[in-house]
Amino acid sequence: MDSIWIIVVGGLVALNCSLVGNLLILRKSVMIGDALSHAVLPGMVMGYFYFGDTNLIGVLGGAALAGLVLVLSIEWLKKSPLLKEDSAIGLIYTVLFSIGVILVSVFASQVHLDQEHVLYGEIAYVPLDRWFMNGTDMGPRSFWLGLGLLAILILVLRFSFKGFNLTSFDPDFAASKGVRIKVWNYFLMILVTAVVVVSFENVGAVLVVAFLVAPGASALLISHRMKSIYTLSSAFALIIAIGGFFLADFTSTSISGSMAFFSGILFIFVWLIRKRVRA
């Protein structure tokens, strides 16, 4: 039963990440997703510290705040002639992540995070952290969080499909039509932050990136239509979660690590067959 919960939660994390990851790929801002996945750490640690492990709002709020700090300071630093976007991203996310790691070492006794945990999470513990409602066992907390987020994402993307398409593929045209590109951009950043925060606990900072980029990148190799990219990448996300779990089971290694590695195997596989398939 535990294995099933791990696969289900891994699948949810992968699905959520791939949904926003597709948009990041199209907007050439995947590295911002990478930066966000590291930068939320100090916010989360402060959230844990002030509001306690069980208070979700505190943790999510802290993380969202740190994400906001990242996005705004990248915008601000880019204005300096000294930094281009890439160096601004590389600088700010390492600073925020460093603060986070230092906080983790300082509060090590009060916070249930440790230095490795923040990098590659511990999805194997997912079944242990259960959610009780009126004393009834409802299953792992991460499952309900992931499911809730998935519902929200599907709803949001359903209604903003056109806007995101327009601002992703032809931002100049969109701007000329009076679409407010910046607003859409911030909106996407909020979605990414939400996804990153919820996924962070399960798979850690670096492996969130795998889930953000791998399904969409693999889908883009064989498809050029937005709707089929969404379908394909969702399917790939699930394949990665399942394949990664069994790879970890087989080699008895870290589950999130092997999910990330499996996403590479999947990408290579799609790469090899890309000329025979068109979706």
Binding site: L207, A210, A214, A248, G257, S258, A260, F261, S263, G264
Partner: peptide
């Protein structure tokens, strides 16, 4: 992330 994932394994 793929290389790092392999490293974590």
């Amino acid at each position: 992330s793929v290389f790092f994932g392999l490293g974590v394994m």
